[in-house]
Each structure stands twice: as C-alpha cells, then as structure tokens.
Design a protein around this nucleic acid. Structure first.
Lengths: 245, 245
DNA sequence: TGCCGATGTGTACGACGTATTCCTGTGATT
DNA sequence: AATCACAGGAATACGTCGTACACATCGGCA
C-alpha cells in the first residue's frame, strides 16, 4: 500500500480508506474506488487471482490500462481494496459474553470467506493488512475477550493465534484444492492415484514408515472441515485453559 | 511441480526427487539439480524471493536463460527444489517419548527457518509440497505422537494444526517485517509513528474503541517471539487436552 | 469567457516465463 | 579409429506484464 513519505511540512493526502468512503468526488469521474474494487474482485473470483492484471481490469472497466492509476497507486493498493471488499461479508455476533462462540464464528467465517475467494491466499501480505472491514472484525474479536479482565498482550496474542491458525489452514486447503483442480483431479482418491508414481519413489525408500502407516490408516483424509474444526477447537481449548476463561 | 501425465503404456520418467539424489548423470553436465537449487536459494536469500527469475538464475549459473529448463520443468519445480533444500536444515529430536517436546521443537525450528528465508512465505503452495526433507520432518512428528495409541486421523489433524499455526504466524511476522523494511522503518515505534497518519483516519472514526484501547495498553507489541510461543503453547495445550495425552 | 486541475488516452520501455530451433561436444558402437 | 545418436546448452523470438511519461479533454470557478 502506498504510504505518503513522512517529510516535514508535507500535506498529508487522504488515505486510501478515507478516499474509499468519500462520495465519488466529481460526477465527471467514471472510475471510482468502489467500481475498481468490484471489478477486480469479480475478475479474481471468476478467473483466478493471477488474472487480475491492470490491463484485464482496464478492459473490464472499459478504460485504458493506465486509467486506474489515477485512483490507485499500483497493484498493492488494488489488493488492499479487494481484500477489504470481500471482508465486508464477515459478520460476527455481538455477544461479548461468549468469547469462544465469537472466536469460533470468526474462524469458521474466515475459512469460508477464503475458500470462496481463493485468491485471498495468494497474497501473503494480505494477512497483515489493516483495512476497515478487517479492523471491524478484530474489534468484535477483542470485545469478546474484553469482558474477562485480561492483560492486553494476552488478548492480542490469543486473537492472533486464532488468526494465524485460520490463515495457515485455509491456505493449505486452498493450495491443495488448486493443485488438484489444475490437474483435473476431482476426488481425493483420484489425486492419490495420480500422485502415486511420484510418491512411490519416496515411499519406496522406506524412510517414512510411520508416515506410510498413518497415510494408509487414516479414514478422514479428505474431510477438511473436520480437520479444521479439530484444530480450531484445540486452539480454543488452549486459549481458554491458558487464560483461565 | 510437473507431473507426468498418466497415460497407458507411457514410461514413467524418474521423479524430481529421484533425479535429485542420482549422481550428476554425465560429467559433461555443468548444471545439476543441486547447483541449480543452491544458486536459486542464494539469490532468494540475498535479493529476495522476487529476484529469483529464470534469467537471474541463469546469469548466476553462467549460462543462458533457457539452460535450466533441461533440468527443471519450470518455476514450480524450481520452488519445490528450493523449499526442499532449506528444509534440510530442520533437525528434530528423535525422542518418541516426548511428543510435546518434539512438536514444540518442530514449530520453533520451522519459524526460525522461515524467518531466515522469508521467501518461503511467498509461495502459498509451498505449504503443501511434499518434498523429501519435509516428509522426513513429518515422519518425526508423527512418530512422536505414535507412542500413545491414537487414531490415525487425530494424529494427522494434530500435526497439521501445529503446521497451520506455525505457517500462519511466520507469514504474518514476515509480512510485517518486509513491510517495515520496504519503508525503511527500523523499530516498532518508528513504524507506528509513520503509520499514524494512515491510522488516524480509521481510528478517528471512533469505530474501533476496544482495538484502540488494547493497542495503547499492550506492552509486548513488538515481542513476536513471545507472541509466537504463547500461541504455540495454546495449540499444544489444546492438543494434549483433546487427545488425552 | 478563459483558465486550471482532475481524469482518461496513447505510446513506450524493460523484464518476465518459456516455446522452438539450432549447435556442439561426448560416450557408445562398430 | 571412425561414426553416430543424443543430451546439454545457446540463440532467437513471442506474448504479457507493471508502469513511467507526455498529451488531450472536460467541468467548475474566476
């Protein structure tokens, strides 16, 4: 995201988010941040994150490739706008009494959001972006933990632990799904079969006996949702235990 | 990673990993998978992951841009090689009796590894790669949980929960560090000050009172290691509790 | 009415991944 | 010792990308 250089006496120009909320400044403008963000998200959802190029975006907006640069400093700004836009769909319960329920909902919704917009996993920096919509979610999460009087550091760390787990999980899930789809495999079994020749060498070395045993015995190999909630509940259990709440 | 199409009667060519371990096939060859991987890692460490282009790699190897394609199917293969190479540094204890110690060491070492090679966070698909070195690590992790007789699914899910948390955390950390460095900020305070004009608008809206309160009260804001171990211990606590070990 | 800043256009550059074709030296075969 | 198939590297080329820069145009205000 473009950040105005911090020089003496420089007039701070309104931030991306401030401009996002201002009404389209002049009727003349056919391009607005909202239109740009919407078009970019649409492209990403329909054709994948890699398809979001400034040129593709421009044609979708019916405009020349350079036009968007009047509103957005570059691709970084664009990604930030996109992340913020889809993050608006997150709606956390406002029940400050039930920290576990709120955090659980936060995790489940975030996972769904990322699976619905797999391109959110493409930008590792997206994790760190503090956009308005993401801050609103964080606010709810913190509020839920705020009821029990805990030190600020623990509260922050707890929320971040959940966030880290969710992002890591969703990214894995998306990466595996993309990998399957790119190769046209439609089921877990088909994938394993196709991968077998590749794995045969590694497994054949006999270096990974335990791995092999578990890979053969596991019965919920393809149940990502179960795996996710299992891990999530571990994290939540741990938080509750460690914070004594 | 290139995968041979699964057609009838086709001779399966040796996998990337099989070729990696074979000695350089002919003395003629000046390029080997080992040399390629080493050069690519060196570039990534010194100049950042984005600097790893087939052309930059070629000049480093003293060779034309297309030469590497004789050994590697493309950039995907190259990334896989790079990830595998740095992952060899992971050395987990072989103490199958102490599952928590092993998983904790796994997590801490992985974090260090990613921080030392920040480009590992660039490729979300890297999370899913099953390279020899990464499988060796997984083997140790599974072995540690193997002692207590648990069902295969829980063991897998527990290991993946730790992995997800670690990757999510490390990515956040790396993203924040990169963001700071890109802007030349050297301390947390300097970063917050520089970001202040941007944040002022969002905070100024008064929509995030709890966030604001916690941001002001927290005293370990810049202690990433503490935050990491806090979250990690939550995850481990939860696993122990949920699996009854 | 005439100017000025905001908005979109046109053109251009350098870098990227990689398909394709060609060349050259090497080890195996006779 | 002469030949030859072929593997490894070189050369060239194509299409695409992000974006710098200079220009044109239009609306609102003096």
């Amino acid at each position: 995201m473009a950040v105005a250089k911090h020089e003496e006496g420089e007039v701070a120009e309104p931030s991306l988010w401030e401009r996002l909320e201002q009404p389209a400044p002049v009727p003349r403008a056919s391009l607005t941040l909202e239109r740009i963000a919407a078009a970019a998200v649409e492209i990403a959802d329909e054709e994948g994150g890699a398809a979001v190029t400034m040129r593709r975006l421009a044609t979708k907006l019916g405009v020349t490739p350079m036009a968007a640069y009047r509103h957005v400093s570059g691709k970084d700004d664009l990604w930030a706008l996109m992340i913020d836009r889809v993050s608006r769909d997150l709606a956390l319960p406002d029940d400050a009494g039930d920290w576990r329920g709120v955090l659980r909902s936060y995790a489940l919704q975030t996972r769904e959001l990322m699976l619905a917009h797999p391109w959110t996993a493409l930008m590792p920096t997206s994790i760190v972006l503090l956009t308005p919509a993401r801050m609103a979610v964080a606010e709810r999460g913190l509020s839920a933990l705020d009821a029990h009087d805990l030190d600020a550091d623990s509260v922050m760390a707890a929320l971040r632990a959940v966030t880290s787990f969710v992002h890591g999980s969703a990214q894995t899930e998306i990466a595996m799904r993309d990998y399957q789809e790119r190769n046209g495999w439609t089921s877990g079994d088909e994938t394993r079969e196709a991968l077998a020749p590749q794995m045969r060498y590694l497994i054949g070395t006999g270096r990974y006996p335990v791995f092999e045993k578990y890979a053969l015995t596991a019965t919920r190999k393809d149940d990502r949702a179960w795996e996710f909630t299992f891990g999530l509940d571990c994290v939540l259990d741990g938080i509750g235990q460690r914070l004594g709440i």
